[in-house]
């Protein structure tokens, strides 16, 4: 699964995207796996209230299923306009 990061999430984790082999069933489970990896992930995912998630380029919630999903993106609240 391709996991992509934007803005300060990308900066904290230190890379824009990566391929991750995971058995996580939901976004929340994937977040738990990532948090357990290294301090930089734990830091990036320390406050889920400050994060948004998109699954296959659609905004969704952290309890969203990862069944058949190809791309997950994590980023802070958007500031367009």
């Amino acid at each position: 699964m391709k996991v992509v990061y934007f803005a300060w999430v990308r900066e904290r984790i230190g890379l824009p995207k990566e391929d991750i082999a995971t058995d996580a069933k939901t976004v929340a489970e994937l977040v738990e796996e990532l948090r357990a990896r290294e301090e930089r992930y734990a830091l990036a995912f320390s406050d889920l209230g400050a994060l948004r998630v998109a699954v296959d380029q659609e905004l969704t919630d952290f309890d969203a299923s990862l069944d058949g999903v190809q791309e997950v993106a994590f980023f802070p609240p958007m500031t367009g306009g």
Partner: peptide, 14 residues
């Protein structure tokens, strides 16, 4: 359009 674009389109300003 503006209201949605500000917080639902994936842009980030630095």
């Amino acid at each position: 359009l503006m209201d949605y674009l500000k917080s639902r389109a994936p842009f980030w300003k630095q």
